[in-house]
Simulated scan of single mutants.
Amino acid sequence: MSFNVSVLPSGRSFSANADETLLAAAIRQGIGLPYGCKDGACGSCKCKMLEGTVTHGTHQLKALSAEEEASGFILTCCGVAHSDVVLESRQVTDESAFPIRKMPVRVTSMQRASSEVMVIRLQLPASDMMKYHAGQYVEFLLRDGDRRSYSMANAPHTQTETPGLELHIRHMAGGKFTEHVFGGMKEKEILRIEGPYGSFFLREDSDKPLVLLASGTGFAPIKALIEHMQYKNITRPAVLYWGARRPADLYMHDWMQAKIAEMPHLRYIPVISDALLEDQWIGRTGFVHQAVLEDFSDLSGHQVYACGAPIVVESARDAYSALAGLPVEEFFADAFTTEADKAKAVSA
């Protein structure tokens, strides 16, 4: 049995089987609904259900509260249709409709960018390239069936000169995958990936100024966006706020300094939250999302692209709309939800 799912205001539709989530059905048919973690933890896929019946699997209440559900909001990543459904989602697009593929990859290089971040490069099968949009991510397929998600840190066009993918992996103490990356992983190791996934990419049909917000390794997809903007000669005014605990955690600070010298329309503002005296830091301090509000009292004419820790993304989304007039549909995000975050999911 399958049901018809219509999406307004685009008018696009797709079918959803009775045993699959709405998001899985949309991805299968190339419908670009917004999403992030796919596990009911981040809330990026939340949208309004105008008609129909949907039941939810496990999810976190911060992603969808009981009050929101009572008001007709759903999470497409864990919502299963029990009738024909009409959704309201203003981010439906064909842009993310690249085919999702599984493929083997070989680790070609590993570089410690900081004490907590490893930059790895992956070689794709011979004469192959992955089609994706700057900002999207892939999933590692682990032997036990688990998956781990990481954003591509290089724009797609860079594969022409240097074939392969660049990923920035932060060490998570006790993490099944990151312990291996920082411990036993060696160059030439073979892994399996699947992708591309995600609805985080630059909306090129707009000419609005850009605020790019990154915390930690949330810089990775932002780096890909910046490379893409330079390659496509996109000259919309843009400013990157990159937040980190200590200056050493700005693991590609020199890369950013070089990039702003090449791109006159791009500004860069690093923000440190826990600077110590020995850091001799003389730049901005505090919470990175708050630094944006200190500089922009009015975001009504901007687009914001935010990546990194869920608390940063959520705080920015709420504050920018409530305090600076940012339209909710102009906030695009990829919250880096960890497995520990996902484990906190509760049955609603």
Rank of each mutant, 00 (worst) to 15 (best):
W281F: 07
P310E: 01
M229G: 09
I222V: 11
G184E: 05
L33H: 04
A306L: 09
G79Q: 00
V92S: 12
T21F: 03
H82G: 14
S114T: 08
T337S: 12
A309N: 15
A134I: 08
Y320K: 07
T58M: 09
P34S: 07
L75S: 11
F287E: 12
A335T: 08
T178G: 06
M229E: 09
S115A: 15
A340Y: 07
I120N: 03
M49Y: 02
P156M: 11
M110L: 14
H168A: 09
G79M: 00
V119P: 02
G301D: 13
I272W: 04
Y305P: 07
D94N: 15
V312P: 02
A348W: 11
P247F: 03
Q257D: 15
G198Q: 13
L87M: 12
H56N: 00
L141H: 14
P196A: 04
L250G: 04
R121A: 12
T21V: 03
R12G: 11
S321I: 14
L165Y: 05
S15L: 14
Q303E: 15
A309Y: 10
A66Q: 14
L122C: 06
V288S: 01
L50D: 10
V181R: 10
E166T: 10
A16N: 13
Y305T: 07
L87D: 02
A26P: 00
A25Q: 05
L124C: 10
R170A: 08
A155Q: 00
H289Y: 11
S315M: 06
E294W: 06
H265R: 08
M118E: 09
R106D: 04
L276G: 10
A309G: 11
L225Q: 09
P270C: 09
P196Q: 02
I74W: 07
T285P: 06
P196N: 06
F177C: 00
L210T: 01
L240D: 06
V5E: 11
P156K: 09
P163A: 03
N17T: 10
V312H: 09
A345Q: 04
S273Q: 12
K48N: 10
S199P: 09
K259R: 15
K62M: 12
C45V: 00
G52W: 08
M263Y: 02
T108P: 08
L191Y: 15
W242P: 07
L202K: 01
